[in-house]
Design a protein around this nucleic acid. Structure first.
Lengths: 213, 213, 213, 213
DNA sequence: TATGAATGAGGGTTCATTCAT
DNA sequence: CATGAATGAACCCTCATTCAT
């Protein structure tokens, strides 16, 4: 059950990149947080940027995997958006550090890895636009600028990683439910009453992120 | 109507802090962008952090001023929220650099200036919470967690600064109108149809930011 | 008549690269020798390698310039070789540091600058092979492998930079004369008696290197 | 006839020290070349410098041993110099890596081992000066500065290690013969015609270096 | 025999900042 | 007003080396 040095390095990077930004985090900060010498860090990583890339791609791949699964299981566009929102919010609430890094540090990447990361993010957002457009086509959603709405909803949900605290008054499932309601309302959906909870998405998050949620 | 060096320095900082972050921007980058030597910069600024503080407080003060004015002129909670959203979106669309700095670089500040900035931001958000709570009390809005809703809407609108382009297909007033609609819907307001446009907010933005909008 | 910092940096590099090799010389060594902080070095140089490249190309260009001039003025192959040898020996005796860097540190260069340096060296050696081949064709020299002989003679003369001391017993002109004799003998030239001294080459060296020789 | 790890380490060091210099070669480079981990290297060597010392002293001892043998067998000063030159050239042509390390990396040694190495080199050069001075005394050689001539000839022959390739057009014995001729001519010896080939020296080299030459 | 883990020291380079001119 | 010169501290990263396994 030992925590390996490798894991400590990664955890330190996630924590500090989220808290102080990539450029605001020094190698010595990472070393101190990981309880290693700065030279030892380099047994477990390539460059500092490699570490960032690994964190971002892993996080994004998990998000994509989870979202694909949730979308596949959902029935109809409303439920699909509900699932996407719930998943996104839960992921941001439970993994705020990783998700903040993903949301804030894209500009810190150099060209090649940024392209790769952006491509992954595009894959993810495609799931959202498909669901939204499908709902619009089906007459379930009513929004004049679906692409803008998608961006607005995504940003709205991203914010959760910035302020949510598990020690706060709002239980996770209510948080997810609230955001789901906000999103579906914003989409002009008459359906909020009929949509289910977010139990299934919690399972997916727990499984994909491999933690006891 | 010459542009002073002081203005060029400030503009350079706004642009680069927005694009690469405070820690990602070097004094030499600023100097190059401002077409000055790095030593000359120090005739127009204190430390690099002073520059950041000045940018953030100015931007926030303008936002607060504009918002107060808009709120004062508005009639009823729905119109108040509409005005706040429109103003916020317009400001983020027209001043994406300043607003991105405000939204992303708070963590780069040291304790004392951060407190001041956070206090300003709290002043601003207070206008939002007041409007929302008033609407809830009046039975115009229906949301179970007004505070969460406020955060969600603010983040949603912040996103505009990340992607809006004046060269895109969406005119500014439609952008503002769309976000207004999303927000009021999310608030469970039956009123969207009855709310006016965003002409008045454009005037305020133009005046407060002192630019031909 | 002040010595500028820039000159001190260059002089330090020439001295230390010659004494300890490029890889054996640290930036901090250079700084100490130049009586500057290591950060200040970077006002006067690009990278450490840039400094090496500049030293090598300057030295080689001077050698080529001087040699071309000497060759042009010389009369006949024997005198041409005599002039080349005398010039080479004088340059290596008077500028041992620069010439040792040129002779020993080519491998320390990365691909692109190495190619440039090698091309310059080839230009220089071409003057030698032309003179030798001309002499062979004219029946003045007798050597079965002119190319090998050229390499042998060049290496022979390079050695001067490794051991010659102005405080030693051998005056410069005798040094040059001796090497001239060795070279012409090795070339199977019956002429040594008839060739002049090295006064003209000393003038050229003095002029090209810009020093009171 | 397996190649031991110890031998692989030594061979790697010889190759890399010759190609990139002592300071230009890292422990990790050696490990990679020897196909071992960098920690494992230390089973077969002391410090990196110990490795260099061992390589240099071995090479120099072999050179001294071979030269002594060649000198003992030679008859008269001309044949003695011929043998020394042939041996030196053959050794440098066949063992370019070792000889380049000996010729170029003396400055990389710290004081104590450098003294030892220099002493060995002096032993070797003594054989040359003895032969030359003997020849001068006997009236066989004619050179006004025998010590300078010795240095010139040694450097001339060292150069072979820098450029000779067994895949080139010049057979080894002709190479040796050519350098022999150059040397004896430079020494003002009327004898070149009468001197024998370099077969015996090839045998010595083969035996002392323990390889199929 | 062999290596993964670990590190203090140092590598080259850039940082934000000051100051004399 | 403007800057070249200058620097201590820090940057990311690699160095040669040790040691428990």
């Amino acid at each position: 059950m030992a925590v390996t040095s490798r894991e400590r390095v990664r955890a330190a990077a996630v924590k500090l990149f989220a808290a102080k930004g990539f450029h605001g985090t020094g190698i010595r900060d990472l070393a101190q947080e990981a309880e290693l010498s700065s030279a030892s860090l380099y047994h477990y990583m390539g460059t500092k940027e490699d570490l960032l890339v690994e964190i971002m791609t892993t996080a994004l791949r998990r998000l994509v995997d989870a979202a694909r699964q949730a979308v596949d299981e959902a029935t109809g566009p409303a439920d699909r958006v509900r699932a996407l929102v719930a998943l996104h919010v839960l992921a941001h609430a439970l993994r705020p550090a990783e998700t903040r890094v993903v949301d804030n540090e894209v500009d810190a990447l150099s060209d090649e890895p940024r392209d790769r990361v952006v491509r992954l993010r595009d894959d993810y957002e495609k799931l959202w636009s498909d669901a939204i457009e499908e709902g619009v086509a089906a007459g379930v959603f009513h929004t004049t600028h679906p692409a803008v709405t998608r961006l607005a909803l995504l940003e709205m949900c991203n914010g959760v990683a910035r302020w949510y605290s598990p020690r706060g008054p709002l239980p996770l499932d209510q948080l997810a439910g609230h955001y789901t309601e906000l999103a579906l309302r914003a989409l002009g959906c008459a359906c909020p009453a009929g949509v289910s909870g977010s139990r299934r998405e919690r399972e997916i998050v727990a499984k994909v992120w491999g933690v006891p949620v």
